[in-house]
Design a protein around this nucleic acid. Structure first.
Length: 260
DNA sequence: ATGGCAAATTGAATTTGA
């Protein structure tokens, strides 16, 4: 089974790119973030006609929004409201006995100071709740994917020194995300696959004149598996070429192939 | 510490992203 995650930055704008990706990469399940679309406007018909009729969506106008698209039966669709908000940052479901958690963790604003910046405290509170949740319910037969908006390791950014005070790579975020992996019972399957030394990015800013030449990326998107699944991972890919598509998202898809 | 952009919404300017 091949599962992918992608922050699409508007699913309505990029539905044709999504369908092309699903077909060309033979994807069974795609988890999307930042769909930015109310449920009644989600392009379910185009996806069903393309061969992905099993869809779980949780969207709102303009911001956030997550979805799971599957060509296999998708059951047990559910969600949790993290930090007491209903802002469409999580959806879960079950495919072939595997529980999928799809997250869009808050970006956290500009200033990495919880006293001055409520968006940053929201982000840290969100991670703290996730850590508590998965510590109390250790996952099994589970996969957690999404735009987690943190690049935890030095090898996950173009310059760990220049980004040390930039939200997504501050010491507290890095430490807390690694604690969530550890205490939550997860394995970072992308890092495990490529090894500790390889520099890996999943996001490149729209602001660069030439994203390839400047290559100032960060690994903000993740695929984690519960530890019982770690030995079942057959392949992992980062589809960097998608950043070069016409009208691209600023994030690229990641995929994992699990023995089934 | 920032930013050369992009998207959605509302209707040229604002908010948000990271």
């Amino acid at each position: 089974m091949k599962i992918a995650t992608w922050n699409i930055n508007s699913v309505r704008l990029r539905i044709n790119l999504v369908i092309k990706f699903l077909k060309e990469h033979d994807i069974d399940v795609l988890c999307l973030q930042e769909t930015k679309t109310q449920d009644e406007q989600f392009p379910v018909q185009a996806l069903a006609e393309a061969g992905w009729p099993n869809i779980a969506i949780r969207g709102e106008k303009s911001y956030n929004g997550v979805a799971i698209l599957s060509r296999l039966p998708l059951t047990d669709i559910s969600h949790l409201n993290w930090t007491g908000r209903t802002d469409c940052r999580h959806i879960s479901g079950v495919v072939k006995g595997l529980t999928l958690h799809n997250f869009y963790i808050p970006a956290g604003g500009d200033e990495p100071d919880i006293d001055k910046n409520p968006k940053f405290s929201h982000k840290l509170n969100f991670i703290a709740e996730m850590t508590k949740h998965f510590s109390q319910q250790q996952p099994s037969r589970s996969i957690l994917v999404g735009d987690l908006n943190i690049a935890p390791l030095a090898e996950d950014v173009w310059s760990t020194r220049q980004l040390r005070n930039t939200v997504s790579h501050t010491a507290i975020e890095r430490k807390n995300l690694l604690a969530l992996v550890e205490q939550g019972g997860w394995t970072d399957s992308v890092r495990a696959h490529f090894g500790p030394k390889e520099v890996l990015f999943s996001w490149w800013s729209y602001r660069a004149r030439d994203w390839v030449a400047s290559n100032r990326g960060r690994r903000l998107d993740h695929i984690w598996v519960s530890r019982d699944l770690a030995s079942k991972v057959e392949a992992v890919t980062i589809e960097s070429a998608m950043r070069g598509a016409e009208k691209p998202s600023d994030h690229v898809p990641l995929t994992i192939t699990l023995q089934s």
